[in-house]
């Protein structure tokens, strides 16, 4: 059914509130940030505006604050995403293939972190991992770490990784359980009747079928952590810092809107890139545009 001109106008009118809202509340600020990053607009309502690449130069200065922040937020979030991927896969297999009494309760409980504000989760982990906190004490008692070892506000962002895993794991599990449900049970049945054990079925049959969800989910989890503010704010150290923190400090503490905007632009490019990859993978999975 190809829509006629009038029909198209009607469709457009239906979508107008949505388009209007995002034009004002989302696209406008992004455009302004982009202009500010080039010196063509002043977000801070001060000073003259003229074209300059000064802020970009500042950002891309090798060994400078911002390259470090970008690198740190990238690798730190990637490590967390990797841990999440592995743990979530195991959990998803568990929930999908095993029936047991009380499963309903467990499946409800594991989703709780999804709905707890980041700030609270970060803070909870801060109290556990700070020297003298329960987990820090326990690890020190086991002799894994020293009595005074810092697991929060440290150079490696250990606290950030732990809290991020806790927060994002359930999302990945939900996603993977969904992907496992889409696998035709008869395929698994076939593999089993052909004499394959459970783990070899997972390896040879199930895993290849869930790769797209696996990657797509990991991408979303990654970008969420990469740009999050609360977790690195509470658990991050003096150095290095997440880029979300350096943006906040530049803008809020020092009024340096220019370089703050460049960082925001970098975040947006990363986000659009990931959104693109995500939709591409999802479309491939749906098999030529057919929605699951």
């Amino acid at each position: 059914m190809e829509a006629g001109k009038f029909e198209r106008l009607k469709l457009f009118l239906y979508m107008l509130p949505l388009i209007g809202f995002y034009s004002v509340m989302f696209i406008t600020p992004i455009v302004l940030i982009f202009l500010q990053s080039l010196g063509l607009y002043s977000l801070g309502h001060m000073g003259e505006t003229h074209f300059t690449l000064e802020y970009y130069k500042k950002f891309f200065e090798l060994g400078g604050t911002y390259m470090h922040a970008l690198w740190f937020s990238t690798w730190n979030s990637a490590v967390a995403a990797l841990i999440i991927a592995v743990l979530a896969y195991l959990m998803a297999l568990f929930f999908h293939f095993i029936e047991f009494k009380g499963k309903k309760i467990v499946t409800a409980i594991y989703k709780i972190p999804l709905f707890i504000p980041y700030l609270i989760s970060a803070f909870a982990w801060w109290t556990l991992l700070t020297p003298g906190g329960y987990i820090q004490r326990f690890l020190a008692w086991l002799g894994i770490i020293g009595e005074t070892t810092q697991l929060v506000n440290d150079k490696f962002g250990i606290g950030i990784i732990v809290a991020n895993v806790w927060i994002n794991l359930p999302y990945m599990v939900v996603l993977l359980v969904g992907a496992l449900k889409m696998i035709d049970p008869s395929i698994i049945e076939a593999s089993r009747t052909l004499g394959a054990g459970f783990w070899s079925t997972v390896k040879n049959v199930i895993f290849p079928l869930t790769i797209p969800s696996f990657i797509a989910g990991s991408l979303l989890v990654f970008i969420g952590m990469f740009g999050a503010f609360s977790v690195p704010f509470i658990l991050g150290g003096s150095w290095p810092k997440y880029m979300s923190i350096t943006i906040y400090e530049d803008v809020v503490d020092r009024g340096e809107w220019g370089v703050g905007s460049v960082q925001a632009v970098v975040y947006m490019i990363a986000a659009v890139l990931i959104a693109y990859l995500y939709t591409k993978i999802m479309r491939g999975m749906r098999g030529g545009g057919e929605r699951a």
Partner: peptide
Amino acid sequence: QPGTYPAGNSAAME
């Protein structure tokens, strides 16, 4: 813990 600094007055106090 050389290289790490408490993130604020309260963290130092802690």
